[in-house]
Amino acid sequence: MKKLKSIIQYECMTSFKYIWMFYAIQYLSVGFISIGIGLVLGNFDDIGTNFLEINTLIYVGILGVLGFHDDFKMLIQNGFTRKYIFIATISMFCFISGTMAFIDTVVANMLHYINSGYLSLYSSLYGYENIFMNWLWLFLLYVAFCSLLYLVILVINKVGKVISIYLGVIFGGIILLVVALFRYVFTAEVISDILKLFMEVMGFMANGTINYIFPVLTLLVFVTILAVGSYTIIRRTELG
């Protein structure tokens, strides 16, 4: 357990400084762009931005990819088991996602207070009424995105680039098949039922109310599936 604690601390503390670097760059960029546009237009009345969380999604996605390449070889060579490496990686994803979800939630609500027209990812769907669910939903969304790209990079490493390209083509074909089914095969009633189920999974109930638990449970199930898949692959991953 001491080794597990040390690797978790290493992963989390190493990533901590990059969180603040990310936000410093993001807010400075937004500030400079807003000032520049305002000076060009001659006023700052309608200057602003929305959905800053998309930048965070891109950032955590990069972390999901680097979560394997940067540390796996170093840690495995220093005697850490694949199980410990996996737990430490997921712990890092949770630490980063939880911290950034908290910052994004606070900033979104502050920006909404200053400018009622500001929209965040969560508020555009569920409003600003529940701050805790806002944080929890963002946290799970960020973890899911990290875990998804982590799983993708593990698969690529395991099967190789050529097979990965074939898998990508097959995946693209499946998407086209699904689109074709919706367009040419499924009846309007079937499509309506599928959309209704999707909306309810997202928390939008048929009676017009919002269930804040359903989207959280959906993301939790998605994260669990991705984590199980990642652990299954990393157990059989060798040094390249």
Rank of each mutant, 00 (worst) to 15 (best):
L154T: 09
V169M: 07
K196S: 14
Y212K: 15
V185P: 00
V201P: 07
A206V: 15
F204Q: 04
I153Y: 11
V169Q: 03
L195K: 07
I213F: 11
M202N: 10
L154C: 14
E200P: 04
V152E: 06
V169I: 15
V178S: 01
A206S: 14
I213H: 11
F214P: 05
I191R: 13
V155C: 09
I191G: 03
F204P: 08
Y212M: 15
V185D: 02
Y184M: 01
I194F: 06
Y212I: 15
M199P: 06
T209F: 14
N157I: 06
V178T: 03
F182Q: 04
S164E: 10
G208I: 13
I153W: 03
Y212G: 14
I213P: 06
G208R: 14
T187K: 02
Y184G: 00
I163D: 10
V159G: 07
N211F: 11
P215M: 09
I210Y: 13
T218A: 09
V152W: 09
S164G: 12
N207K: 12
S164I: 12
G208D: 14
L217T: 09
G160I: 08
A180R: 05
N211L: 13
V155T: 14
I170F: 13
L219E: 06
K161H: 07
G160S: 08
V179N: 03
K158D: 09
V162P: 00
L176C: 12
G172K: 07
I170W: 09
L197Q: 05
F214V: 12
G160H: 07
F171E: 02
I194W: 01
S164F: 09
L219T: 03
R183K: 06
V178A: 04
Y166V: 06
R183Q: 05
V162C: 01
L217H: 09
K161G: 03
I153T: 14
K158G: 02
F182T: 01
M202W: 05
I194M: 06
L167C: 01
T218I: 03
L219I: 04
L177M: 05
T218L: 10
A206P: 15
L195V: 04
I170R: 06
V216T: 07
F214M: 15
V190L: 12
P215V: 02
A180E: 02
V185K: 01
G173W: 12
A188L: 12
K161S: 13
T187Y: 03
I153Q: 10
L219M: 09
D193V: 10
I153E: 13
I165E: 00
E200I: 09
L177P: 01
I174F: 11
V201L: 15
I175D: 01
G203V: 10
G173S: 14
I191N: 09
L176K: 13
